[in-house]
Amino acid sequence: MELQLQYFLLLAAFLFCIGIYGLITSRNAIRVLMSIELMLNAVNLNLMAFSNYLDPENIKGQVFTVFVITVAAAEAAVGLAIVLAIYRNRDTVDMEQFNLLKW
C-alpha cells in the first residue's frame, strides 16, 4: 500500500496542534521554545510531503525546509541567549514570574 499525501498532512496538523497546546499551557520558557520548534517541524513535514508528491522535480519544498531548519536554529539560539540573560538577572525562567510589564 502506498502512503497517501493526506496522512502526512494530518500528522503535520496534529504536530502543529500539539505545538500550539504546549505554547499556551507551558510555564517554563524553555518549554515554550520547544513547542515552537514543534510547530516549525510540523511545517517542515508539510513542506516535505508537498515537495514529494506535487513538486518532485524542482523540490522547492525541500529547499524551503533547509532554510526553515537553519532559521529555526538561529531563532532558538537567540531565544536561549535571552532566556540565559533573564535567568542571570532573575534566577528563574518561569513565565508567570515575568510580570514587570503589565498589560
Binding site: 505554547l23 515552537i36 510547530m39 516549525l40 531565544g79 532566556v83 510589564l101
Partner: peptide
C-alpha cells in the same frame, strides 16, 4: 520585553509558515 517579543514573534512566524506551507501545496 525581549523574551515576550521573541516567543510571540516566533509563534506567529511559525503560524505564518504553516500557512505558507499550505500555499505551497
Amino acid at each position: 520585553a525581549a523574551l515576550k517579543y521573541l516567543l510571540i514573534g516566533a509563534a506567529s512566524s511559525a503560524v505564518f509558515l504553516y500557512g505558507a506551507s499550505l500555499l505551497y501545496g
